[in-house]
Amino acid sequence: MLLPFFEWCENTAIGETIRNSLWLFPVIEAVHLLALCLLGGSLLVVDLRMLGVGLKGQRISQVAGYARPFLIGSIVTLVCTGLLLFLSEAVKCYYNTSFWVKITTLPIALLLTFAVRDRFSLRKSFETSAMSRLLGAGSLTLWFVVAAAGRWIGFS
Protein backbone atom coordinates (compact mmCIF):
# COMPACT_ATOMS: atom_id res chain seq x y z
CA MET A 1 0.00 0.00 0.00
CA LEU A 2 2.84 2.36 0.88
CA LEU A 3 5.05 1.28 -2.01
CA PRO A 4 3.69 3.88 -4.49
CA PHE A 5 4.52 6.59 -1.95
CA PHE A 6 8.08 5.28 -1.57
CA GLU A 7 8.42 5.14 -5.36
CA TRP A 8 7.21 8.72 -5.56
CA CYS A 9 9.80 9.72 -2.92
CA GLU A 10 12.58 8.11 -4.89
CA ASN A 11 11.49 9.87 -8.08
CA THR A 12 11.50 13.35 -6.58
CA ALA A 13 14.02 15.75 -8.05
CA ILE A 14 16.01 15.72 -4.79
CA GLY A 15 16.15 11.94 -4.64
CA GLU A 16 17.22 11.73 -8.26
CA THR A 17 19.91 14.40 -7.90
CA ILE A 18 21.48 12.64 -4.91
CA ARG A 19 21.30 9.23 -6.60
CA ASN A 20 22.93 10.49 -9.78
CA SER A 21 25.77 12.22 -7.99
CA LEU A 22 28.97 10.41 -7.11
CA TRP A 23 29.75 12.44 -4.00
CA LEU A 24 26.44 13.87 -2.70
CA PHE A 25 25.38 10.69 -0.87
CA PRO A 26 28.76 10.20 0.89
CA VAL A 27 28.90 13.87 1.89
CA ILE A 28 25.35 13.91 3.31
CA GLU A 29 26.13 10.64 5.06
CA ALA A 30 29.28 12.15 6.60
CA VAL A 31 27.23 15.07 7.98
CA HIS A 32 24.66 12.54 9.28
CA LEU A 33 27.51 10.73 11.06
CA LEU A 34 28.97 13.92 12.57
CA ALA A 35 25.53 14.85 13.90
CA LEU A 36 25.30 11.34 15.37
CA CYS A 37 28.46 12.06 17.38
CA LEU A 38 26.93 15.28 18.72
CA LEU A 39 23.66 13.50 19.53
CA GLY A 40 25.57 10.78 21.38
CA GLY A 41 27.43 13.33 23.48
CA SER A 42 24.47 15.54 24.32
CA LEU A 43 22.34 12.50 25.24
CA LEU A 44 25.05 10.74 27.23
CA VAL A 45 26.07 13.63 29.52
CA VAL A 46 22.46 13.87 30.70
CA ASP A 47 21.53 10.16 30.67
CA LEU A 48 24.71 9.17 32.54
CA ARG A 49 24.00 11.91 35.08
CA MET A 50 20.45 10.59 35.52
CA LEU A 51 21.90 7.10 36.03
CA GLY A 52 23.95 8.57 38.87
CA VAL A 53 27.35 8.53 37.11
CA GLY A 54 29.35 11.03 35.05
CA LEU A 55 28.92 14.69 36.05
CA LYS A 56 27.65 13.79 39.54
CA GLY A 57 28.61 17.11 41.16
CA GLN A 58 26.06 19.01 39.06
CA ARG A 59 22.30 19.10 39.17
CA ILE A 60 20.49 17.11 36.47
CA SER A 61 18.64 20.26 35.39
CA GLN A 62 21.92 22.14 35.00
CA VAL A 63 23.53 19.50 32.79
CA ALA A 64 20.31 19.01 30.79
CA GLY A 65 19.90 22.76 30.24
CA TYR A 66 23.42 23.13 28.88
CA ALA A 67 23.18 20.07 26.63
CA ARG A 68 19.72 20.87 25.24
CA PRO A 69 20.64 23.24 22.35
CA PHE A 70 23.12 20.64 21.06
CA LEU A 71 20.61 17.84 21.47
CA ILE A 72 18.05 19.75 19.42
CA GLY A 73 20.63 20.91 16.87
CA SER A 74 21.92 17.41 16.31
CA ILE A 75 18.45 15.89 15.99
CA VAL A 76 17.37 18.55 13.47
CA THR A 77 20.54 17.89 11.43
CA LEU A 78 20.05 14.12 11.64
CA VAL A 79 16.42 14.32 10.50
CA CYS A 80 17.23 16.65 7.57
CA THR A 81 20.20 14.64 6.30
CA GLY A 82 18.36 11.39 7.04
CA LEU A 83 15.42 12.52 4.91
CA LEU A 84 17.77 13.35 2.02
CA LEU A 85 19.46 9.94 2.27
CA PHE A 86 16.04 8.28 2.39
CA LEU A 87 14.78 10.13 -0.72
CA SER A 88 17.77 8.85 -2.69
CA GLU A 89 16.98 5.19 -1.97
CA ALA A 90 13.38 5.06 -0.75
CA VAL A 91 12.44 1.82 -2.52
CA LYS A 92 15.46 -0.01 -1.10
CA CYS A 93 14.34 1.22 2.34
CA TYR A 94 10.80 -0.06 1.75
CA TYR A 95 12.12 -3.63 1.47
CA ASN A 96 14.60 -3.18 4.32
CA THR A 97 13.64 -4.54 7.77
CA SER A 98 16.22 -2.38 9.57
CA PHE A 99 14.68 0.73 8.05
CA TRP A 100 11.26 -0.18 9.50
CA VAL A 101 12.79 -0.92 12.90
CA LYS A 102 14.47 2.46 12.84
CA ILE A 103 11.46 4.38 11.63
CA THR A 104 9.19 2.90 14.31
CA THR A 105 11.62 3.35 17.22
CA LEU A 106 12.54 6.90 16.19
CA PRO A 107 9.14 8.50 17.04
CA ILE A 108 9.11 6.61 20.36
CA ALA A 109 12.61 7.90 21.16
CA LEU A 110 11.62 11.46 20.18
CA LEU A 111 8.47 11.26 22.28
CA LEU A 112 10.38 9.95 25.29
CA THR A 113 13.03 12.65 24.88
CA PHE A 114 10.84 15.70 24.39
CA ALA A 115 7.51 14.76 26.00
CA VAL A 116 8.80 12.86 29.05
CA ARG A 117 12.55 13.25 29.66
CA ASP A 118 12.54 17.03 29.18
CA ARG A 119 9.74 17.51 31.71
CA PHE A 120 11.73 15.81 34.46
CA SER A 121 15.33 16.62 33.56
CA LEU A 122 14.78 20.39 33.34
CA ARG A 123 13.03 20.55 36.73
CA LYS A 124 15.35 22.08 39.34
CA SER A 125 14.28 19.68 42.09
CA PHE A 126 14.88 16.55 39.98
CA GLU A 127 17.46 14.35 41.74
CA THR A 128 18.97 10.94 41.02
CA SER A 129 16.19 8.47 41.76
CA ALA A 130 14.55 5.33 40.46
CA MET A 131 12.64 7.57 38.03
CA SER A 132 15.76 9.32 36.74
CA ARG A 133 17.56 5.99 36.33
CA LEU A 134 14.61 4.57 34.41
CA LEU A 135 14.55 7.62 32.11
CA GLY A 136 18.31 7.54 31.55
CA ALA A 137 18.35 3.82 30.76
CA GLY A 138 15.24 4.08 28.57
CA SER A 139 16.63 7.00 26.60
CA LEU A 140 19.99 5.30 25.98
CA THR A 141 18.35 2.01 24.99
CA LEU A 142 15.88 3.57 22.55
CA TRP A 143 18.42 5.81 20.83
CA PHE A 144 20.85 2.88 20.67
CA VAL A 145 18.25 0.85 18.75
CA VAL A 146 17.59 3.78 16.39
CA ALA A 147 21.31 4.20 15.65
CA ALA A 148 22.08 0.47 15.38
CA ALA A 149 19.13 -0.18 13.06
CA GLY A 150 20.21 2.84 11.03
CA ARG A 151 23.71 1.46 10.54
CA TRP A 152 22.27 -1.95 9.64
CA ILE A 153 20.21 -0.48 6.74
CA GLY A 154 23.47 -0.41 4.80
CA PHE A 155 24.30 -4.04 5.52
CA SER A 156 21.03 -5.82 4.78
Binding site: L36, C37, G40, G41, L43, V45, F144
Partner: peptide, 13 residues
Protein backbone atom coordinates in the same frame (compact mmCIF):
# COMPACT_ATOMS: atom_id res chain seq x y z
CA UNK B 1 30.36 3.48 14.40
CA UNK B 2 28.08 3.49 17.46
CA UNK B 3 31.05 3.97 19.81
CA UNK B 4 31.54 7.31 18.07
CA UNK B 5 28.58 8.58 20.06
CA UNK B 6 30.38 7.70 23.27
CA UNK B 7 33.94 8.62 22.34
CA UNK B 8 33.60 11.64 20.02
CA UNK B 9 30.32 12.65 21.70
CA UNK B 10 31.78 13.02 25.20
CA UNK B 11 34.97 14.54 23.73
CA UNK B 12 32.93 17.27 22.02
CA UNK B 13 31.00 17.95 25.25
Amino acid sequence: VLSLGLFVGTTVM
